[in-house]
Simulated scan of single mutants.
Amino acid sequence: MPDTAVLDVDGTLVDTNYQHAIAWFRAFRRFDVTLPVWRLHRAIGMGGDQLVTAVAGEEFESAHGDDVRDAWVEEFDPLLPEVQPFEGARDLLAELGRRGWTVVLASSGQGAHVDSYLDLLDARGLVAGWTTSDDADATKPAPDLLQVALERVSGRSGVLLGDSVWDCEAAGNAGMRSLAVRTGGFSVEELTGAGAAAVFDSLPELLGEIDRTEFARPS
């Protein structure tokens, strides 16, 4: 019986996916590996612990995984001032709280990045808690972060909102239903195929139809 709204952050509440893809592209270039940006974009939504192997293979992960993740942070940090919230992001947080949901953010981002997003959204008074990459050994599509997020707010069961197939797969692995927005660049068919019960083009569209979704009222 869901009582907790579990929201992804990157690509769902704040517009970061393409900055992440460029940062990963530049990070891999430091190791003389050139990966197509479209391929990197398709992996955004995974945490760095999963992404490196997914796009560059186990041999590269074994040799350079931690170093390329450090390089990604160095490449992404200068792009952080460009990040903006999606239209309707704060309104959604407020509306979910008004309807009685416990709201928790399930992010696999770096702690400093998550702090920046919380400030950007002015969200600290609207959510009961949040996670970072430090909170689980395995990030999405593994269920760990979602389970930690739920435990952090003493939630009974959750409904996830995300923007990537990895979010929806993680929700399924955690035994949660999921909704999705297309702001991460995935198609309706991909998101529903990964388990999303419904897909919306934007957060305002979700807000306009919220009474017909799993977010209508907590159980």
Rank of each mutant, 00 (worst) to 15 (best):
M1T: 11
V6T: 05
V6M: 06
L7N: 06
D8H: 01
V9K: 01
D15Y: 04
T16S: 15
N17K: 10
Y18D: 15
Q19T: 08
I22T: 14
F25C: 11
R26V: 04
R29S: 15
D32Q: 12
D32H: 14
V33R: 15
V33W: 08
W38I: 11
H41A: 11
A43G: 11
G47I: 00
G47L: 04
D49S: 12
V52H: 06
T53A: 14
T53E: 15
A54N: 07
A54K: 09
A54H: 14
A56S: 09
G57K: 06
E58I: 08
F60W: 07
F60S: 05
E61S: 11
H64M: 09
D66L: 15
D66K: 15
R69N: 13
R69H: 10
W72R: 14
E75W: 03
E75P: 03
E75G: 04
P78T: 09
P81M: 04
P81T: 10
E82C: 13
V83W: 06
V83C: 12
Q84E: 15
P85S: 10
A89D: 01
D91M: 02
L92R: 03
L92W: 04
L93C: 10
A94F: 01
A94K: 12
E95Q: 12
E95L: 13
L96Y: 06
L96V: 02
L96I: 02
G97T: 06
G97N: 07
G97S: 12
G97K: 11
R98M: 05
R98W: 03
R99H: 05
W101D: 05
V104Q: 05
A106F: 00
A106Q: 00
S107V: 03
G109D: 05
G111C: 09
V114K: 01
V114D: 03
D115F: 02
Y117M: 12
D119Q: 09
L120A: 11
A123I: 00
L126T: 04
T131Q: 04
T132N: 08
D135Y: 09
D137T: 14
A138H: 14
T139Y: 12
K140N: 00
P141A: 08
A142Y: 13
D144Y: 05
L145R: 10
L146D: 01
E151T: 09
E151K: 10
V153E: 07
S154C: 08
R156N: 13
G158A: 12
G158M: 07
V159D: 05
V159A: 08
V159E: 02
S164M: 05
D167G: 08
C168Y: 00
C168P: 00
E169L: 12
E169G: 02
E169M: 06
A171T: 01
N173T: 08
M176G: 02
S178D: 02
L179K: 09
A180M: 04
A180P: 01
R182T: 13
R182D: 01
T183K: 01
G184V: 03
G184P: 02
G185S: 08
G185T: 07
F186K: 11
F186H: 13
S187P: 05
E189W: 04
T192E: 15
A194L: 06
A196R: 02
A198P: 00
A198E: 14
D201N: 13
P204K: 04
L207Q: 13
L207T: 05
L207V: 02
G208P: 01
G208F: 07
E209L: 12
D211F: 08
D211L: 08
T213V: 10
A216F: 10
A216I: 07
P218I: 03
P218M: 10
S219L: 11
S219K: 11
